[in-house]
Simulated scan of single mutants.
Amino acid sequence: MCGRFTITHPNEALAALFDAVPGNDLPVAPNFNVCPTNSVAVVTSAGGQRRLRAMRWGFIPTWYKAPNDGPLIINARADTVATKPAFRAAIRERRCIVPASGFYEWSEGDKGARLPWYFTRADGQPMALAGIWQRWGEMDTVAIVSTEAGPGMAQVHHREPVVLERTDWPLWLGEAGHGAAVLIQASAEGVMAPPFRVGVAVNSNRASGPELIRPVAA
């Protein structure tokens, strides 16, 4: 699962990394507490051209009459993304990449306390999170694909976002033919750095600033 993430890399750096043309309405970076319904930078590909575009994090199915007409959809489960009516066209035709510098996940502490952990790639590079997108009215919306947790994540939570490797980007974006379903899997051991606890300030969607990713004693 992925319910909050960070983007500390500048938009120009992301555009260069993904060889994408940047839009002129991208959200301001850095953001140490990207929350659902925020505008996020997303990589799409069409006609041999990649673009870095702004989208609303919160996938809106075509039949919603308003953005809040049903549940807020920020993740799409790997086991149902190809069959659920909300997602099945998007997973075939509108796959994308959501760049993230890291993401948060929560474990349960004493008396139900929510204890936040921070995850990054071991190599320090931005994460390329697998996503699907949907146009709703005049707005593009996105969800992050999640799967069963792998070895780098299972100690904290039972699900994790699908993290794509650089060699997988063309297949996920539809540039290298069919067969992207094989990429929907947990990260291999060693891809993610050991997670560390951060302060509970990030439990609030109003919190901001680099201190949110400062390690604290577990």
Results as ranks from 00 to 15, higher is better:
residue 187 S to I: 03
residue 168 D to T: 07
residue 175 E to K: 03
residue 182 V to N: 09
residue 193 A to S: 14
residue 194 P to A: 12
residue 191 V to N: 06
residue 170 P to T: 11
residue 194 P to F: 14
residue 161 P to Q: 11
residue 192 M to R: 14
residue 170 P to E: 11
residue 188 A to E: 12
residue 184 I to M: 15
residue 185 Q to P: 04
residue 165 E to M: 05
residue 174 G to A: 01
residue 174 G to F: 12
residue 163 V to P: 03
residue 183 L to M: 07
residue 169 W to Y: 04
residue 178 H to C: 03
residue 189 E to Y: 05
residue 185 Q to T: 15
residue 169 W to I: 01
residue 179 G to K: 10
residue 174 G to Y: 11
residue 165 E to V: 01
residue 168 D to F: 02
residue 171 L to A: 00
residue 183 L to T: 09
residue 170 P to G: 10
residue 166 R to N: 04
residue 198 V to N: 01
residue 198 V to M: 04
residue 186 A to H: 14
residue 185 Q to K: 14
residue 170 P to S: 06
residue 198 V to P: 01
residue 174 G to V: 09
residue 167 T to F: 08
residue 191 V to P: 01
residue 161 P to K: 12
residue 164 L to G: 00
residue 160 E to A: 15
residue 177 G to S: 11
residue 169 W to K: 02
residue 189 E to L: 13
residue 160 E to W: 05
residue 172 W to T: 01
residue 161 P to R: 08
residue 189 E to W: 05
residue 172 W to E: 02
residue 186 A to P: 07
residue 180 A to E: 09
residue 189 E to Q: 13
residue 166 R to S: 05
residue 197 R to S: 00
residue 194 P to Y: 12
residue 163 V to N: 04
residue 193 A to N: 08
residue 179 G to M: 07
residue 189 E to H: 10
residue 197 R to H: 00
residue 192 M to L: 15
residue 183 L to Y: 03
residue 177 G to W: 11
residue 178 H to N: 14
residue 186 A to I: 10
residue 182 V to W: 06
residue 166 R to D: 01
residue 162 V to D: 10
residue 191 V to E: 09
residue 164 L to Q: 05
residue 163 V to I: 15
residue 171 L to K: 02
residue 182 V to D: 13
residue 168 D to W: 03
residue 185 Q to D: 14
residue 177 G to V: 08
residue 167 T to L: 07
residue 161 P to Y: 09
residue 199 G to L: 02
residue 174 G to C: 08
residue 167 T to W: 09
residue 165 E to N: 04
residue 178 H to D: 15
residue 187 S to G: 10
residue 184 I to Q: 10
residue 167 T to Y: 13
residue 173 L to R: 04
residue 183 L to I: 01
residue 167 T to E: 14
residue 166 R to Q: 10
residue 197 R to N: 00
residue 173 L to M: 06
residue 192 M to P: 00
residue 182 V to H: 14
residue 177 G to C: 08
residue 183 L to G: 09
residue 164 L to M: 10
residue 169 W to C: 02
residue 180 A to C: 06
residue 168 D to M: 08
residue 196 F to P: 00
residue 175 E to C: 06
residue 199 G to P: 01
residue 198 V to W: 03
residue 181 A to C: 02
residue 184 I to G: 10
residue 189 E to F: 05
residue 173 L to G: 03
residue 184 I to E: 06
residue 173 L to Y: 11
residue 176 A to Q: 13
residue 199 G to N: 05
residue 185 Q to N: 13
residue 163 V to Y: 02
residue 188 A to R: 15
residue 171 L to W: 04
residue 167 T to D: 15
residue 178 H to Y: 08
residue 180 A to K: 03
residue 190 G to N: 11
residue 191 V to D: 09
residue 166 R to T: 01
residue 195 P to S: 12
residue 175 E to P: 06
residue 181 A to Q: 14
residue 187 S to E: 11
residue 163 V to S: 04
residue 168 D to V: 01
residue 174 G to E: 02
residue 195 P to E: 06
